[in-house]
Amino acid sequence: MLTLTINGLSHDVDVPEDMPLLWVLRDHLNLVGTKYGCGIAQCGVCTVHVGGKPVRSCQLTIGDVGTRAVVTIEGIGSTPNGAKVQQAWMEAAVPQCGYCQAGQIMSATALLDSNPQPDDSDIDAAMAGNICRCGTYIRIRRAIKNAAAKSA
């Protein structure tokens, strides 16, 4: 039995230690806001925060999470930057199909957490691993800048 802290709540899960966090979130805890895309750390759709860092949950095994706190798309809105990012996302109407967006929002929030005023190249460096098949990149960039302006 492993104990995880997810979005501030503690959860006991009875799963093998080598199960990826993504599977635990979706299949065992019914936190299905985090999506499954490639399964090999190539698309970013499964991004969550672990210990404050953006991490591809399809690659992180539950045994390696340890005691680090996990935040998912379901909980990000109750963090200051997460709330700003979600607000900016709605104002810019970023999503098209929406599939990649949970991951985009998690990566964008992590970016603002570490860098409150990112420039274009900072956004590229932080968001390059989050792929959007609908091509919403322009709106994503605008929304990140708007969210940053809110914090200023």
């Binding site: 750390a41 953006p54 591809r56 690659q59 095994t61 691993g129």
Partner: peptide, 26 residues
């Protein structure tokens, strides 16, 4: 450098290896 290598690293590598080289994953 703002190089091709950096761009590739950003897109394909940084999410697991981090910009520090110390992986947040494993």
């Amino acid at each position: 450098s703002n190089s091709r290598g950096e761009k590739i690293f950003a897109g394909a590598c940084a999410s697991c290896h981090d910009w520090t080289g110390v992986s947040p994953v494993t």
